[in-house]
Design a binder for these strands. Structure first.
Length: 887
RNA sequence: GGGCGUAUAGCUCAGCGGGAGAGCACUUCGUUGACAUCGAAGGGGUCACUGGUUCAAUCCCAGUUACGCCCACCA
């Protein structure tokens, strides 16, 4: 017997363990079934489950459960990402609490500490995914720094280097002066800040008293100025081009050059050039052959190239002092308020500094070409399609990808340097030694390994194939053959560039094939202010708390129902509560089934039903199944969720179970038997349809209804229906009945006498005779069909009563006392008015000749039908009004 | 500066070229056997604004306004 209520926490733990132990999550490479693959975007090991995770993994789990039930050999490949900077920061912070810096430990011991941390806390996110019900193939779990995956990283790096697609270059990078590493363009976030624009006078050399005015938002960089640019055709400055400026404070002579970068319309039309600290100036400097003077050290403090009194000074302190000095020298023309974008490191939050260093770069432009083509030709499709444009824009303007990071945690770059700086890029130190021996013509040359590690996304880019066992070019791996490429990648738009694009590039280069056929981009779950949730902002809503309060099933269903395309999700807990209630509703429906002796009979054939109401629900199940399938195949999760919700609550509970009551209360053994079996059968179908959304409650009910004899629900097949099932529904008849009942209800409501007994059973309202007669004949439908009219009795009828004619017998139904006749009249009059307006509207439409002649036939018919309906409503209202008038 | 998205009930959001929807909230009524985490009935909307296409526009097109996001090296 089912308990009156159920305890989600209990059944969640129970069933998850059961599923996992039974091997239900595991792919089966040996099976004959078609494979279906989803690569799980690896969450950071440092991660804690947030709503974004909950959404993305719920959707993936939904798909994988659905496909698994459909009979595919479903592989959901899980794993975690080593998250270079994030993880290193976490461990460093922990060490800092004990007063230790990573430099105290040294590289090796620090890495040991990180691995220790990973062993202890790294499994957290994976545990939390299990709480979500994620049915991933856990024994296949991978970590981006596993030996196999690391080997793949090294071999990819070496191959790309040897193919000329990875190179070392000295150029300006985005330098994070807090984390002391280079970062890629994508890791830079522009923040709008209120700043100032300082206008400085630079004295012209050899022309006493003449100045050229330059404006800057970053006065401190003037220490590294090596030129002033004006537009070559700017008349104001024609005579100055070629002359020098004497740089104040520094005293250096720097040339005035003509360069089209200088915009005559902006400011004074002259711009100071600091090639070592600004990306534009870098270009100008290169064109004009200007010197590059780096005035910052790695902390963004003034280095030895600055004036003695500035050396070691922090950049913003230097700014203040420089401004003060200009003022003192009378060279400060003016200060303006100025709003501008300032680049910040997305991890550290401090302004980044363009800095001249040696870094490793990937030639992304070359790799992007096939990746672009794959989407252009439709080999990989984005859903929704609009994201393809985002992808194109970025890929077509792609910049070299800086992949080296000055960190310790990550894949150390497999490059070794000889004493003369010769670079040997090989997969191992032995190989590098060998290459060095060949190069130098002798053994035992001392080599030093590049200390840098690779961008975390470098290893993530290999995820679609490295997780399947690929370690290097030429590897032939059966599982790769079977499960690659993946069917769909489910992820958020925020990592299209970081990850999706790079997987496309790497996969096409090394696999010669796309990594996945579809990229489903879901919305972002935002906080209540519409802000992106992020750890650094601290505005993360904890899905585990929601699960605690409302159950995992409710959270999952809510996320699926809200995952419509094209809008961000601002989660409202009232929605979760509504879907929690949905679970309760199902639970109680199941209790009803149980109480009425509805037992699941595996041999039952739904096509054998004779009663119309049973045929009808069979057809409804078949239709709902189709609807859900179509929606899921098209990644319309909300449509699928709504379809199953409506079917369960509205069709099954509100109508079908209510219709079943008089039948089950009758004495027709055959009808009772058929109805019991149908009820149980429908319930079982519902459990299947709902399982991908609400795996726990469905598995629990499955267990209680004896479905378990055939194995776990998670491993059982998806319902299949034929046209015969749909044809069986006889829904025209039933829909008529439902409409009729609704009409009668509405009339009673107008009379302010809502039915005192639930829903369709109003016919038995206060009348045992009707109940008895209804029970005698199990064909409820034919009886209802003969309920042809509602007629008012005059004379002896009690006040406010209505007469119902069923077959030849007349029944009197009490309508109860009317409370306020005047108010009621006013309300009905209003209704009448509304109806008349509607009818008027439709009349007009029908009278419009061009409408009748040009509108499609079915439209015209619909309009006529609608008018007829309104006329009927009008008649009812008039009837009600007349009754009121009598009182 | 470029690109994209969004504007629908009090709130959170679906939907759509022919009768304005859901959940929550609200009003009224109803609990002696599935379910008060419930049932029945109901109130509430110029579908942001303007113009266009169409027999027909909340929906398609153009423009406007407001908000949000992404990209971008403008001193």
């Amino acid at each position: 017997m089912l308990d009156k209520t159920f305890n989600p926490a209990e059944i969640e733990a129970k069933h998850y363990t059961q599923w996992e132990q039974s091997g239900a999550f595991s792919a089966d490479p040996g099976s004959d079934s078609l494979p279906y693959t989803i690569m799980m975007p690896p969450p950071n090991v440092t991660g804690n489950l947030h709503m974004g995770h909950a959404l993305t993994f719920t959707l993936q789990d939904l798909l994988i459960r659905f496909k698994r039930m459909k009979g595919f050999d479903a592989l959901w490949q899980p794993g975690t990402d080593h998250a270079g900077i994030a993880t290193q920061m976490v461990v460093e912070r922990q060490l800092a609490e004990k007063g230790i810096s990573r430099h105290d430990l040294g590289r090796e011991k620090f890495l040991d500490a990180v691995w220790d941390w990973k062993a202890e806390s790294g499994g957290n996110i994976v545990k939390q995914l299990r709480h979500l019900g994620a049915s991933a193939d856990w024994p296949r779990e991978r970590f981006t720094m596993d030996e196999g995956l690391s080997e793949a990283v090294r071999s990819v790096f070496v191959r790309l280097y040897k193919d000329g697609l990875i190179y070392k270059d000295k150029r300006l990078v985005n330098w994070d002066p807090k984390l002391l590493t280079a970062i890629s363009d994508l890791e830079v976030q522009q923040k709008e800040l209120n700043g100032k624009l300082w206008h400085f006078r630079y004295p012209i050399d050899g022309e006493e008293g003449r100045y050229i005015v330059v404006a800057t938002t970053r006065p401190e960089t003037m220490l590294g100025d090596t030129g002033v640019a004006v537009h070559p055709e700017d008349e104001r400055y024609q005579d100055l081009i070629g002359k020098n400026v004497k740089l104040p404070i520094v005293g250096r002579l720097i040339p005035i050059v003509g360069d089209e970068y200088a915009d005559p319309e902006t400011g004074s039309g002259a711009v100071k050039i600091t090639p070592a600290h600004d990306f534009n100036d870098f270009e100008v400097g290169r064109r004009a052959g200007l010197e590059m003077i780096n005035v910052f050290d790695k902390f963004a403090h003034i280095n030895e190239n600055g004036p003695a009194e500035y050396q070691g000074m922090e950049r913003f302190d230097a700014r203040k002092r420089i401004v003060a000095e200009f003022e003192a020298l009378g060279l400060l023309e003016k200060i303006e308020d100025h709003v501008h974008m300032v680049p910040h490191g997305d991890r550290s939050g401090v302004p980044i500094e363009p800095w001249l260093t040696d870094q490793w770069y990937v030639d992304a432009e070359t790799l992007a070409k096939p990746a672009l083509e794959a989407v252009e030709t439709g080999k990989t499709e984005f859903v929704p399609k609009q994201w393809e444009n985002t992808y194109y824009d970025w890929m077509r303007n792609i910049q070299p990808w800086c992949v080296s990071r000055q960190l310790w945690w990550g894949h150390q770059i497999p490059a070794w340097y000889g004493p003369d700086g010769e670079i040997f890029v090989e997969e191992s130190e032995e190989a590098a030694q060998k290459a060095a021996a060949a190069h130098y013509g002798r053994d035992g040359v001392e080599l030093n390994r590049d200390p840098d590690v690779l961008d975390t996304w470098f290893s993530s880019a290999l995820w679609p194939f490295s997780t399947l066992g690929w370690r290097g070019p030429g590897d032939e791996i059966p599982e790769l053959d079977r499960y690659y490429p993946g069917d769909v990648l489910v992820t958020g738009f925020d990592i299209i560039f970081f990850w999706v694009a790079r997987m496309m590039m790497m996969s096409l280069y090394f696999m010669k094939e796309i990594p996945f056929k579809t990229v489903y981009i879901h919305a972002l779950v935002r906080d209540e202010n519409g802000q992106k949730m992020s750890k650094s902002k601290g505005n993360v809503i904890d899905p585990l708390e929601i699960i605690e309060e409302y159950s995992c099933d409710a959270l999952r269903f809510t996320l699926a129902a809200m995952a419509a395309q094209g809008r961000d999700i601002k989660l409202a807990t009232s929605r979760v509560e509504g879907y929690r209630n949905f679970g309760t509703k199902l639970w109680n429906a199941a209790r009803y089934c149980e109480m009425n002796g509805a037992e699941f009979d595996r041999a039952f054939d739904p096509l054998s039903c004779n009663l119309k109401v049973n045929k009808w629900i069979v057809g409804k199940v078949a239709k709902a199944t189709q609807e859900i399938e179509t929606a899921l195949e098209g990644y319309r999760f909300n449509d699928a969720a709504n379809a199953v919700y409506r079917f369960v609550w509205n069709d099954f509970c509100d109508w079908y179970l209510e219709f079943s009551k008089p039948i089950l209360g009758s004495e027709d053994a055959g009808a009772i038997e058929e109805t019991r079996k149908t009820i149980a059968w429908v319930l079982m179908q519902i459990l299947h349809l709902l399982h991908p959304f609400m795996p726990y409650i469905t598995e629990e009910l499955w267990e209680n209804f004896g479905g378990k004899d055939a194995g776990l629900l998670i491993s059982s097949g998806w319902p299949t229906f034929t046209d015969a099932h749909i044809d069986a529904q006889a829904d025209a008849d039933m829909d008529w009945v439902i409409r009729l009942i609704s009409d009668v209800r509405a009339v009673r409501a107008e009379m302010n006498t809502p039915p005192s007994v639930k829903a369709p059973l109003y016919l038995s309202d206060g009348n045992d005779e009707i109940r008895r007669r209804m029970s005698e004949n199990t064909d409820l439908i034919s009886r209802l069909a003969r309920l042809s009219s509602l007629e008012e009795l005059s004379g002896e009828m009690p006040k406010g009563a209505i007469q119902v004619v069923v077959e030849e017998t007349t029944f009197v139904m009490p309508l109860g006392d009317l409370i306020d006749v005047g108010q009621e009249k006013a309300r009905l009059n209003k209704e009448m008015e509304k109806t008349l307006v509607e009818i008027e509207k439709i009349n007009k439409k029908l009278a419009n000749e061009s409408f009748v002649s040009k509108a499609p036939e079915h439209v015209v018919k619909e309009q006529h039908d609608r008018k007829a309906d309104f006329e009927g409503t009008k008649a009812k209202l008039e009837e009600a009004l007349a009754r009121l008038a009598d009182l």
